[in-house]
């Protein structure tokens, strides 16, 4: 497979009134052509900051302290502002969370969709508008020709998100970053948008980085999943690895708190107790330890390295150390392990 993006050991800090917040503390991943990588985590875990770093769309008080972001081997962090402008909206584009506020309220939507084309390609305004119309049809805006001149407030939330998607794909980007594109939408509309993204991916062959706090959304769209906690990836692997052979207690917690069809047995949802750590003073050891039922002494002293579970499946938990005691995962997780065996995997 073709690696098109490689993020290596990314560290991002934010200067705040109270001190430096270490929002991203060493994140590494790569992205292959045509695949979908999902990054899952609670709000504040740093998933949004991670992808914004790729396009360098961070707040002014942010500082990318360390690391590199290689796009076809070219470090984006070394690029000039102008160099980045040529990447944004052209090679790598982004869909934002809230469609109600993502569109310029005083510009007709046709113009907004055509804008990336006019910026990056030497096309006439007429051609750009024609292409915008075509893309609007592609994303499912009915009667696009007539609606090109309409303003954002004349569309519903779901339609607006389709328009935002149209803006993102109008210039056939190689990478599409979707930052919680469905969070602000109704459940039924959510499913439509996910289907649209899948469909578009097949049509134009773009890679997608999909950010969400909702594991349920992930299963339908992702090839690989990374679970993020307190500015770090705690576990990553294929969708099957994460869903049916999870190793990190945090992933267990996330899966355990997910409603499934057979949740009815006890009729309750579990939650992960406690709150994420304050990244102003990140803990010395494992950041999840205070909330972790299975925390060990070593967790408070040293951050766990990534242990290999299988090919392309890694988890940062001391539980995978050969010296660690055997723990008893939650019942719902054990069920998942069984399913994994049925799928032909080997459970540790």
């Amino acid at each position: 497979m073709d690696k098109i993006l490689e993020v290596k050991d990314l560290h991002v800090n934010f200067a705040t009134y109270n001190g430096t917040v270490q929002a991203i503390r060493g994140v590494s991943f790569d992205l292959n052509a045509g695949e979908t990588l999902a990054i899952v985590g609670e709000s504040g875990s740093g998933k949004s900051i991670t992808v914004r770093s790729i396009l360098q769309l961070l707040a002014k008080n942010a500082d990318i302290a360390k690391g590199s972001i290689l796009y076809h081997g070219d470090d984006l962090l070394q690029k000039s502002e102008k160099g980045m402008d040529n990447i944004r909206g052209n090679k790598i584009s982004m869909i934002f969370q809230d469609p109600m506020t993502s569109l310029d309220p005083t510009m007709p939507i046709g113009k907004q969709v055509a804008e990336p084309l006019l910026i990056h390609n030497n096309v006439s305004k007429k051609d750009a508008m024609a292409r915008a119309e075509e893309v609007l049809r592609l994303v499912g805006i009915p009667n696009p020709k007539a609606r090109m001149k309409d303003y954002p407030h004349q569309f519903s939330g779901g339609q607006r998100q389709r328009i935002v998607i149209a803006i993102a794909i109008v210039d056939y980007p190689e990478i599409l970053i979707a930052d919680e594109p469905t969070t602000a939408l109704d459940v039924t509309v959510q499913a439509e948008i996910i289907d649209l993204l899948k469909e578009l991916q097949q049509k134009i062959g773009t890679s997608i980085i999909f950010i969400t706090h909702d594991l349920g959304v992930v299963a339908g769209i992702a090839d690989r999943v990374a679970v993020m906690y307190a500015g770090k990836f705690v576990e990553y692997g294929s969708v099957n690895d994460i869903f049916y052979n999870p190793q990190h207690p945090y992933t267990w917690g996330l899966l355990d708190s997910m409603p499934t069809l057979d949740t009815s047995e006890a009729n309750r949802l579990n939650s992960i107790p406690g709150t994420p750590p304050n990244l102003l003073n990140p803990p010395k050891g494992d950041a999840f330890a205070p909330r972790n039922k299975y925390a060990m002494e070593i967790d408070e002293e040293e951050q766990p390295p990534y242990f290999k579970v299988s090919k392309n499946h890694y988890a940062a938990t001391w539980l995978l150390h050969p010296n660690a005691p055997k723990v008893d995962p939650p019942a719902s997780i054990k069920k998942r392990f069984e399913k994994f065996k049925q799928l032909g995997g080997s459970v540790k």
Partner: peptide, 17 residues
Amino acid sequence: SSDYIELAKAKGNSSWK
């Protein structure tokens, strides 16, 4: 600081534009 300005930036507009 609004979202649509961020989107405008994400489209590849220069800061001036």
